[in-house]
């Protein structure tokens, strides 16, 4: 005879079993196999990790990925902050349309957004023609196949992830605090620096962590806009698998990337509410 409590637990287990089972088989198990694979190089179990951490070619790829991620995070936050502030000042239809303007790009495939940038940044593309025509450049610039092009494309894809958490945070700022600061004679700059900026910092931190984490794993945008000149860790993993068939090395690179992301996440989650950042989307 089942007691009521046992029945309750049984139903909970039955509801959760399919999704947990699915993730165990299709997500955790393959990752486990890849992790195991990374220790199976003929030269010894840790040789792959030593190769990647010791080879200047590999460390350069990790370094380039880091530089790109830092650069893209800085630009998205600097551009996203005033944009989020503008959103808090809009009302009615203008606000709705502006928010849709931030959300809509997230619905478009990264591949299409990156392809559009190829067309725009090409040597004979409209942006180069405009810059040369206006006399800003003497000759068309090589935006493509460089970190510049990759950074432009990545900023475009990741900007909404910076704007949305900052905007959500700004909406929660109590306007009376700003009025009080004003009323007590603080200059607008002082009010911004000592009241508004500290109060909106959690949103900035959440946006920055989110953008940075996503940027570290970027593949499509750097592969198409940067090519071999701007290799990221994700591109390295793809090359190791598809061109060199070096599975143990690919596994090691994957888990070094994953470890970096998990460490960052563990550190960040002590200061930042990332769950809240995910929910505003």
């Amino acid at each position: 005879m089942l007691t009521a409590t046992m029945r309750r637990h049984l139903i909970s287990a039955a509801l959760l079993a399919p999704v947990v089972g699915f993730l165990a088989v299709v997500f955790m198990l393959p990752l486990g196999v890849l992790l195991k694979l990374s220790f199976t190089a003929p030269a010894g179990p840790l040789s792959t990790y030593a190769d990647i951490l010791g080879g200047w070619l590999y460390t350069r790829v990790f370094w380039n990925t880091l530089v790109l991620a830092v650069m893209v995070t800085a630009i998205t936050i600097l551009a996203g902050y005033p944009t989020a502030h503008m959103l808090t000042r809009l009302k009615g239809l203008t606000l709705t349309l502006a928010v849709y303007g931030v959300l809509f790009p997230l619905w478009i495939s990264v591949l299409i957004r990156t392809f559009a940038w190829i067309l725009l940044l090409e040597k004979n593309g409209p942006i180069n023609r405009l810059l040369v025509g206006a006399g800003i450049l003497d000759a068309p610039a090589a935006f493509l196949f460089s970190n510049t092009g990759v950074a432009i494309g990545m900023v475009h894809v990741l900007l909404p992830y910076a704007i949305l958490p900052i905007y959500a945070n700004m909406l929660r700022v109590d306007a009376r605090l700003l009025q009080a600061s004003d009323g007590l004679g603080a200059s607008p700059l002082a009010t911004f620096r000592r009241v508004y900026l500290p109060l909106t910092m959690p949103g900035v931190a959440a946006g920055a962590v989110l953008v940075f984490l996503l940027a570290l794993g970027f593949f499509i945008t750097p592969a198409l806009l940067g090519g071999a000149n701007s290799m990221t860790v994700a591109m390295l993993i793809e090359t190791l698998v598809n061109e060199r068939l070096a599975w143990p090395l690919a596994g090691a690179a994957s888990f070094l990337l994953l470890a970096a992301i998990l460490v960052l996440l563990a550190v960040a989650s002590r200061f930042v509410k990332l769950g809240a950042a995910l929910e505003v989307r």
């Binding site: 944009t83 900007l159 009010t191």
Partner: peptide, 30 residues
């Protein structure tokens, strides 16, 4: 805050509008 200053307002809205244009327009180049 500095909301009363039209210069500040203009700067924020100008920059924000530029960012929105940067987000939306390139997609439609295709």
């Amino acid at each position: 805050m500095a909301e009363r200053s039209p210069g500040f307002r203009f700067a924020v809205h100008g920059l924000g509008s530029l960012v929105l244009a940067f987000l939306l327009l390139p997609i439609f180049a295709v």
